[in-house]
Design a protein around this nucleic acid. Structure first.
Lengths: 244, 244
DNA sequence: TCAAAAGTGTTCTACTTACACCCATGC
DNA sequence: GCATGGGTGTAAGTAGAACACTTTTGA
């Protein structure tokens, strides 16, 4: 916010990139678009676009989300992830990008975007392989994945991946898919049904193909999980980016 | 990162603002500068400056930190907090700012900055009162405070507030000052001396004015605290910014 | 009656909490 | 000695992990 008239201020373009996660086919998938022009022509990239004159980054993220998925943002979780600013990240010039993380359920198979790009859902593991993504998007995607994983520990956002009505088992599958590990059904049920405000009972039930019907719940308001629901102890992992 | 040649791209200036925290006089204090020009002439603000052509935001944050405190960043913790982008946040025009959080110990009383601004350490509680800060800096400072508080739960960054050599009680005071609540000395000691890699014993001791000498430790490498060291249960607080 | 999934109960262990108590130093 | 802070021990309560067991449905 200050004040050095003699410094060489960068002429900067600002974009917003979206990491849109959903759970499909028992996998965590991310929405990617095929680039229609250079650089990285034909390669896959995160959806995104330029910040406009009168909007906040949040506005821009919501607008891009709507353009790419047709979803209006009311029923999904959207949060700012981090801003990426390597001067070399875009060969065309100085472009910094604010990355956003969006978590949703039941997101539509995307239609062609505004400039006729093809968009696809792809498993996150696949997208992270082999320099498949343009720019620094693999790095952004990696950060988003870690953020999603840890948010599942400390908050109730996992419900953002579920439909309007869902069972405890539906929610457990979200955790299992995103954490990549199996959870004990009994302990999971106890934990989250006790956590105040995580689930709202509806009294309705869902009859499965086979087996006992399951109670259906609605998501409660998003909040912190207290106590948190920790992944199994991995040892020592650095949390968050540190500069120095 | 994309691709709408016809959109009205914003002409944006990019700055970096620093929330530099230190513990002085048993209080959490933040470094503020007195603005030397309009807008908000004479008011207090977070130190910061414009992003330059060939640097990352991290580089810019380190540079500003050095300019404001003379500290070279090697001995403190620095991380990106969030980017603030309200179109009205700066009356001069479109300026978005990437806020950084810096945690340090024993930071010097700042000298006059490059453009002869006065800089002060001020208790965070005081700085948050009464619209004292320029721009949206009170909001940034509030976010930084919450980030610092929660990082103390999940990581070992609290040692960033301590000098080279410190006692368990020194570290406990950091937690008490930042969380604003008293902690049981016995349980605190057990918890953090067990946490692998939090503290490195030095074999040295410090003789206090009165009482038994205390063992001196050095900080271990920063990492996640597992299991975390949770603040006492506050109920339901929203963690992190959510857009929709 | 059987398979399958939902849901409950039980035991063991580990961690938190609260607090009593001992230790090492200066005065 | 005694005051002061450093440091250890311990018992009660709570939460997680593992897993046996019961319930409810369709076939």
């Amino acid at each position: 916010m200050t004040h050095d008239p003699d410094s060489d201020r960068a002429a900067v373009s600002v974009t917003v990139d979206l990491v849109i996660f959903t759970v499909r086919d028992d996998e965590l998938q991310v929405l990617l678009v095929e680039r229609g022009k250079a650089p990285y022509l034909g390669q896959l990239a995160l959806p995104g676009g330029h910040l406009r004159g009168k909007e906040t980054l949040d506005d821009a993220a919501l607008r891009e989300l709507k353009e790419e998925t047709g979803v209006d943002g009311a029923h999904l979780h959207l949060e700012q992830l981090r801003t990426y600013s390597d001067p070399q990240r875009d060969p065309r010039g100085r472009v910094i990008t604010a990355a956003y993380l969006a978590l949703g359920s039941n997101l539509p198979v995307p239609v062609a975007g505004t400039d006729a790009r093809e968009a696809y859902w792809m498993p996150v593991g696949t997208a992270l392989h082999d320099h498949m993504l343009a720019f620094d998007h693999a790095s952004i995607l990696g950060d988003a994945l870690e953020r999603a994983r840890s948010k599942l520990e400390y908050t109730t956002v996992a419900t953002a991946f579920c439909r309007e009505l869902f069972t405890v088992t539906d929610l457990r599958r979200v955790y299992e898919v995103i954490w990549g590990s199996a959870l004990d059904p009994s302990n999971f049920r106890r934990k989250i049904t006790r956590a105040d405000g995580f689930l709202e009972p509806t009294g309705q039930r869902r009859i499965p193909a086979t087996g006992r019907p399951a109670s259906l719940y609605r998501k409660g308001p998003p909040h912190l999980l207290m106590p948190p629901f920790l992944r199994s102890y991995n040892g020592t992992l650095e949390q968050g980016a540190q500069v120095a």
